[in-house]
Design a protein around this nucleic acid. Sequence first.
DNA 1: GCTACCCGTGCC
DNA 2: GGCACGGGTAGC
Length: 467
Amino acid sequence: MYQVPSQYYLRLHHPRPRFKREIEEVLIYIASEITAIGRLPKQEFKRALNSAIRRYPGNLGSKQKTIDNWRTEIDALFGFIVEDGDFSVPSNRAVELATNQDLVKFFKLFCYHFQYPGGFVKPNMNLEFLQYGVNFKPVHYILKMLSCAEESEGQRAGINKAEATHCIFNDLRVTRDNRPVQDTWSLIMQNRRTNVEYDWDGDTTRYAGDILDYAVQANLLVKRPNGYYYINHVEDLAIQRFLNAEPDDHFDYYSRLPDISNVTLEDVKALDMEWVRYFNTERDESFFDTDILALATDTEEQYQELKSLITNLDEIIEEGLESTGSIGSVGESLIINHERVRISDEGRPDLKHLIKLIPAAYSVGYDINSVEVDEKKRLIEVKTTASSKPLDFRRFHLTPNEWAAADTFGSRYYVYRLMVTKGSLRLRLIPDPVAQYKAGNLTATPRNGMDIIFDPDKCGYEVELLR
DNA sequence: GCTACCCGTGCC
DNA sequence: GGCACGGGTAGC
């Protein structure tokens, strides 16, 4: 059984995700609720969030202890709440996730900022990390190691949970001394050649395993059925951001501590508050834009096929797009193409030119002007969600503008719910949301517009995205 | 006694 | 054997 030499052994730790089965649903739900709560005095914020967690499906009968644990642990791990004096405030990452519903981008940013030491553990444990001199960004290290390994071996290089645990996470030669990635890879390869066994106990490997799984959610790694994680080369652009990250782009506890040789719990606690701010550093909107075409396709050919569809549209709709790479914009482009194919298939290719993107600046309450075969208008609001895992997401938000437009235009108004997951694009059409609300087919909670939850059995219908 | 990550335990 | 409930426990 492989053992890290005892003088180098330190178990790294972070809060367990208590929602791994439904991580996407829970995260978007919590981020949306936190965003909706907004800036409130700490106690009121806590109460409002607790009641939101209680309303999450399945939590009605949970103990209060469990509700409290959800609130504090999800926030600790994902940095959703920033403390500002006596107030609690939704963090940048929470607001972005609630607004864009781009889980892939969210996890890229999570992986990019995640580090040990970090404010997600209790101060006494963080103090221990600091006394050991831990200074470690796990996703950066793993991506760097796997790309070096690929380069030197000329083939795909993978790693499993146990190797990541025992050769990387729990070894101070890596987490403190930043052992060269080539040396770590050599150790892993040597262990494979000599059939060294690892402790696979669930509670031992779960922490490194969690991080690998988050990197999969970020679409940076892919997990094969053999349990090995490999670099996902459709994301090379994002991976370069990790490989070329500035060394000072991390939260440096050490330089901020008054006295490194005599760190107190007080010092650590004060810095943990600052840590949340680092974790929520403002990034360029395009810093990690999700390439939803890359996410939705399995091969380069499929990718190029979709890409060319959109590129051909670019000149026509260019001026209307806010930022060409964002998931919302790509979603809108896909829907414009879908609508043009639809109207042609229905026998009126002459109407194709009427299908247009409305520039966001006009704030008309929908994204796309489309048409029916009888030349009546069809007004389309596109709601796109991106996630690595299959997602059956029944929630979306309509702004006051959008809800008002839906009310005004009635059956002419459609929500196109586009769900992008690994290897697939799914599209659900929800006509006339206001009428559906009145008919009880969906619930709409007023909150800066309407939070919608629809019943897929009664509300709308799924169609194939036309290409 | 209260808070909030920590983590034993048992379920699926 | 992965995962989440809710009691554990350290710090105040």
